[in-house]
């Protein structure tokens, strides 16, 4: 085991940057694999071993690995959200959930539809601002890695990207449902069913957002987000 020289490290970084990867997780794993392997070989064999590694981690292979990782991270975040959601209905958390739902139903029934819309808008704004805050934090972490590899590509965490996409999808669906009037039907806001429908969707929205934030917090302890 030896330490790589600055020139050798630069050569490794150049080889990895040339793969034009954008996932911070994949980059850090490949970089560690390269350096760990090259540290275990003599400096005379450096070029030969680097070439061998380049044959194993070809451009197309690395991009396939990145795509698979993105898929796996989507699955992982969804599984994490689902297991978090289930904990809301286990003892003693179910008491807090029941109290929250009871308060929500009570408040929702006492306010008019305009105030309900204002409440929805306020919550979505808070969620959007929190997401931006989380994303900036994650982007900063990934930026350090971008400097290390000296890559020209924008590097971000695949987990952060998954969470942002899911968050944005949720926001979009929510807004389409409530704020695009007359989608071939009667204006939903003027409908007598607006109260119960908005309450249900509001609950789903809050649950999804809370589980997404919780999943983010859990992953941020172990991943680059």
């Amino acid at each position: 085991m030896r330490q790589l020289s600055e020139q050798e490290l630069d050569q490794v970084k150049r080889a990895i940057a040339a793969k034009e990867l954008t996932s911070a997780e994949i980059l850090l794993e490949i970089y560690d694999h390269y350096v760990s392997h090259l540290e275990s070989v003599e400096s005379l064999k450096f070029e030969e071993e680097l070439f061998e590694l380049e044959q194993k981690f070809k451009y197309s292979h690395c991009h396939a690995l990145q795509a698979k990782f993105l898929q796996a991270s989507k699955k992982e975040i969804f599984n994490l959200q689902w297991s978090i959601f289930k904990t809301y209905f286990t003892w003693p958390r179910i008491v807090a959930t029941a109290v929250f739902v009871a308060i929500l139903i009570f408040v929702w029934n006492t306010i008019d539809s305009q105030t309900q819309i204002k409440a929805i808008v306020l919550v979505t704004i808070i969620c959007i601002l929190s997401s931006i805050g989380f994303y900036i934090n994650s982007f900063r972490k990934a930026r350090g890695f971008k400097k290390l590899i000296k890559s020209n590509k924008t590097i971000e965490s695949s987990y952060a990207s998954t969470i942002m996409v899911q968050g944005m999808l949720m926001q979009s669906l929510f807004h389409i449902l409530f704020f695009v009037p007359n989608l071939g039907f009667a204006n939903i806001i003027e409908s007598e069913y607006f109260g119960p429908i908005s309450l249900c969707i509001f609950f789903i929205y809050i649950s999804l957002t809370l589980t997404l934030i919780r999943a983010w917090k859990i992953k941020s302890k172990t991943a680059l987000i």
Partner: peptide, 10 residues
Amino acid sequence: IQQVDNRVRK
């Protein structure tokens, strides 16, 4: 994730 020398190891 752990810092090892000048890199991050998973």
